[in-house]
Design a protein around this nucleic acid. Sequence first.
DNA 1: AGCGCACGCTACATATTCTGTAGCAAGGAC
DNA 2: GTCCTTGCTACAGAATATGTAGCGTGCGCT
Lengths: 116, 116
Amino acid sequence: MPKPASPIRNKPRGGPVRGSRTGRPIMALLDLFGRRWSLRILWELRERSMTSRTLRAACDEASPTVLNERLKELRAAGFIELIPPGGYGLTEMGRELLGLLLPLHRFAERWEKERS
Amino acid sequence: MPKPASPIRNKPRGGPVRGSRTGRPIMALLDLFGRRWSLRILWELRERSMTSRTLRAACDEASPTVLNERLKELRAAGFIELIPPGGYGLTEMGRELLGLLLPLHRFAERWEKERS
DNA sequence: AGCGCACGCTACATATTCTGTAGCAAGGAC
DNA sequence: GTCCTTGCTACAGAATATGTAGCGTGCGCT
């Protein structure tokens, strides 16, 4: 492990996750989603499980370095799991979360229209 | 303006926003939210408008550089607006979006509990 | 007028994070 | 055995974020 835990983004270690120095879980969630590819990964897994390589293809061939970092974080968070040979898929809680995120799709369509 | 539009993250310019090379607005949205402080800013404005400096305080004193970049992007997206002297606040569409994001709060609480 | 202060916003050097390419070790099918 | 795909890592270079300082404007004050 070449990176011994980021010294700045984990500044107030002792709390559960970065960004939640208040301890409020919503902050941890917003922070986790505020990293590149987090939301995208969850979104791409919404219908079916995927191998890491297929997932990478679905995410515009994002760098495997970050992708694997996100996959670790999302696994640690309990939203996805790795079940060979199917690959990565949503957990029970992951599906629950996706249920909340799904309405964004229709909103995004309306949003697209209303901006000139 | 010292930065003439990022050459990589805007790679496939011609599309509306980064990450939406398919043109699907949901991708643009997921990508916008996948940048640091985007979601947090929207979240902090959920109840009241704030001056940029108060907002910065609410966001753990995040760097004003990125914060202002996000504020620009969110304004361009039509989610927030600047109305002096009240400061930054959600637009009509911003409030609509927040409505979808709000259930995350309760989910986050349950999530916190279920992870050992 | 001057002074003080908060506003939105920017400069710039430093630190962190992401990208892109290459590659490893393990496992399965043949 | 060879061939192929899997999950995952190394590493250099590029993009992005951080932290401190400060600018110019406007407003209220005397």
